[in-house]
């Protein structure tokens, strides 16, 4: 029973953001399936993966949301960011333009998530060192300036992929332990398992009409 797949203490919601083609879906696939997905089609709408991990002896279910790099529909974007405990912000080390857009992704992440959301910077495609367009040092400096944790990863070889996802979870768990993340806050992105959240039927958007 202790090892059962549904036995976990918390659910953490993660989102993966970044320009199109940086490898968001491949990172997710590598983390959840431990496989590289060659010929991975571009994401349309929202895709989704889960995996149960362990941090300090506690089982945690990661609920990872992956969306299109070019998301055009605002309603989706808002629900997507809302209540994320962790945000993995990805660029491609072989394409400088994807790095140059990080500040805009970071602005979105800061504006649309709660202040305690852990943002982790990933430089993907580290296996393509010969085509490198952004140095490790430059990205590290950007991460330090903005208070982000940073790793270069490869969704293809799997290098550092586990570390990026697990390190983010450790930081979130630490925030819970030291009380800086308030679990009673609706958009904390963390749900203790036995606490079903209910909202009134009909949702928040329906308004009465004036007739």
């Amino acid at each position: 029973m202790a090892a059962g797949p549904y036995n976990y203490s918390y659910i953490f919601k993660y989102i993966i953001i970044g320009d199109m083609g940086v490898g968001k879906s491949c990172l997710l696939h590598q983390f959840t399936e431990k496989k590289f997905m060659a010929d991975c089609p571009h994401t349309i709408g929202v895709e989704f993966g889960t995996r149960i991990i362990e941090v300090s002896g506690q089982k945690i279910k990661l609920q990872i949301w992956d969306t299109a790099g070019q998301e055009r529909f605002r309603a989706v974007t808002r629900s997507y960011y809302r209540g994320a405990a962790g945000a993995l912000m990805v660029y491609d080390i072989t394409r400088r333009s994807t790095y140059n857009h990080l500040s805009s992704w970071l602005t979105d992440a800061r504006n649309l998530t709660n202040p305690n959301t852990v943002i982790f910077l990933i430089g993907n495609k580290s296996d393509l060192d010969a085509q490198r367009d952004v140095t490790y040092e430059e990205a590290k400096a950007f991460a330090d300036e903005n208070g982000l944790t940073f790793l270069e990863c490869s969704a293809k070889t799997g290098e550092n992929v586990e570390d990026a996802f697990l390190e983010t979870a450790r930081k979130i768990y630490q925030n819970i332990q030291d009380g800086s993340l308030d679990l009673n806050q609706a958009d904390s992105g963390v749900q203790p398992k036995q606490l079903p959240r209910t909202t009134p039927a009909g949702g928040g958007d329906a308004k009465q009409c004036n007739c």
């Binding site: 349309i44 909202t199 949702g203």
Partner: peptide, 16 residues
Amino acid sequence: VAKCGSDALQLMFVHR
């Protein structure tokens, strides 16, 4: 779905 909250009502599974 409505009981699951307003994000669920965005019906993200049908977007694609």
